[in-house]
Amino acid sequence: MKVYITASSAITPQNTFDSEKYLDVWQSSDLPYQLAIEPDYKSVIDPKLARRMSRIIKMSVATGNKVLAEADIGQPDAIVVGTGLGCIKDTEKFLREIINEEEGLLSPTAFIQSTHNTIAGQLALMLQCSEDNFTYVNRGHSFENALADAMMRIYEGADHVLLGGTDEMTSEVHNILTHMNCGGNTLLGEGACFFMISNTKIDGAVCIEGLDTVNYITTQQITERVKSFLRRNNVDTNEVDALILGIGEGLGDPYYKEIIQMFTPDIPVINFKEVTGEYFTASAYAFNVGSEMLRKQCIFPKILISGNNTSGLTKVLIYNHYQGVNHTISLLSL
């Protein structure tokens, strides 16, 4: 059984939400971290519902709604979301209030909204979707947990699963992560990417051939891991038409170097973190840009870091790691 991405939408620090303007004009910012370019939500979310929503919920609901509309699915068979830090802005807000009020009189809204599954729950409430509703919060594999679940649901018999990977950045989180030395050279970022995962191939659908996640693997082991992943999916290394990597700004990163060296020097290499920056669920965007590349047969020059072979795209390999701990390998095909 095959699993397909039949619709996909992303809000990121670059132009990705509006399909017409997808990665056309490059945005630069002076902020010490990357903030998503948010659409005017009034046209996408009922203001009555939006009034309690923090940015992460708005970004997620907007991309989720767009995916549902694009795939023309009113009620998915499940809603599955991955998020590294969840509704961190509301968490901060409630915590700050506890501290300022010394556990005195507290308003409950931020607490309610801070729960990690607020996003998936809110989508269920809006769609009146009573089917399975899961939220995964597993560091650099938060989105991967959700994707693996969505794929398993297709094997279990589901037709359509609404899948998302989402995180928001705040100045406070940025401050703390900077003090912790997270992110290395890569700017921290944020974004929401939603997908319709389906069991049938429709026009423009992209197949997820496989997903492999592994923790604590050495640079020596990574190439063997990728090779065996490709073997399992009956794909030869020279059949891979492009690489989508989460390099960020650390070009010296040995993992990515090893992967690139497995392929011919002219293979197009895309660095998707140029768009998103680094965060727990940044890898979700690799699946969005991969789908766009295959559907549009286009290698986005702004994020192409090497390779010039553009003789048609059928198979693209995704590889990302978070802090050298959580590694992700996947393959998309047309």
Binding site: R52, L105, L106, S107, P108, T109, I112
Partner: peptide, 13 residues
């Protein structure tokens, strides 16, 4: 009902 709780906080504050 969440607004009702907020209004209680508002009146007290």
């Amino acid at each position: 009902s969440i607004d009702a709780l907020e209004l209680i906080v508002l009146l007290e504050k």
